[in-house]
Design a protein around this nucleic acid. Sequence first.
DNA 1: TTAAAGTATACTAAAAAAGTGTACTTTAAT
DNA 2: ATTAAAGTACACTTTTTTAGTATACTTTAA
Lengths: 135, 135
Amino acid sequence: MKITQEADYAIRIILHLSALGKGHIVDAATISEKQGVTLRFTLKILRKLSKENLIQSHRGVNGGYSLVKNPDEISLKDVIEVIDGDFAINKCLKDKNACNLGRAATCNVHAALRDIQNIMIKEFDKIKFSQLLNK
Amino acid sequence: MKITQEADYAIRIILHLSALGKGHIVDAATISEKQGVTLRFTLKILRKLSKENLIQSHRGVNGGYSLVKNPDEISLKDVIEVIDGDFAINKCLKDKNACNLGRAATCNVHAALRDIQNIMIKEFDKIKFSQLLNK
DNA sequence: TTAAAGTATACTAAAAAAGTGTACTTTAAT
DNA sequence: ATTAAAGTACACTTTTTTAGTATACTTTAA
C-alpha cells in the first residue's frame, strides 16, 4: 500500500520543475544533484515523464527538460500514474480475471474496494503542484 | 499501491467466519478449501489474525477458529493492518528518517500525503464485515 | 491413548522494485 | 564541418518484498 520510490522521486522532480515554472529548461544533472537521486535513475524517470507529456525534453547542447503545463494543472495523481501505472488497491481492480474464485463481478469486497479507490484517486487529483511549492 | 495477496486472503477468511457468526468454530482445512487458499498459507494467516485477537483459536480435536467480535465491529482496516502492518502510502509516513533529504517535517508533499492517507484509513475503517456479507 | 487439530520458526521461490551499463542520436556553439 | 554536451533506447543486475513451504512440535476431545 505504498507509492514506489520511483514515484516519490518523480514527484520531487516535477516539484523542482514547478518551482522554475512552465517552459523553463533545466538539465538532468542539476535535477539529480539537487534531489539526491542518481543521474541514471533520474534520466529513467525523466524519460517516462516526457513520454507521457508531463514534461518536454530538449536535446543537444544546453538541452534539458521543462514543464509542459503550469504547476496548477498537474496533480499528484498525474505523476504517480505515469510512474506506477493506474491505481489498483487490489489485483482484482486492475484485472477482474485475477480473482482466484472468478467472482469479482458479484463480490461485495470488490465493490467496497473500488469505492474506496475512487475516493483515493479523487484526493490524489485534488493536490496540484502549485500548492506544494514552498513559499 | 496495493494491499497484499495475503491481506486479500485474510479479508475472505474473516468474511467466511463472519457468515458463520461470532463464536462459531470452523477448522482451517474447511476455510482453506472454500476460499481456494493452500492450507499452509491459510494457517499462517489464521495465526496472525488470532495473535491480534481478531479471531480465537481452539486447539485439539474438533478445534478450529472463531470470530471474537461481531461482524459489525470488524472493519477492512482492522484486517488489513493485522496482515500488512500500519498504513503508509510513502516510506516517510512510516519513518520520518526515511526521507533522503531529511526534510519530512517541513515537506509539503509529506503533509499532503499524510492528509490523503488519513482519509483513506477512515474509508477502510467505515467498511464493516456485516455489510460485506452476501444476503 | 490416539489422532485430529493448532503452534512455532525457519526456510525457499517467485515477483517486483530499484538501480546500472553500453552504445547510441541530436544539436548549439565554434 | 566538428565537437562536446546533452538526451535516448533498451537490456541487464541486484536488492527487497511477497508468497508459499517444510519440519518438528503441543494441545485436547473422543
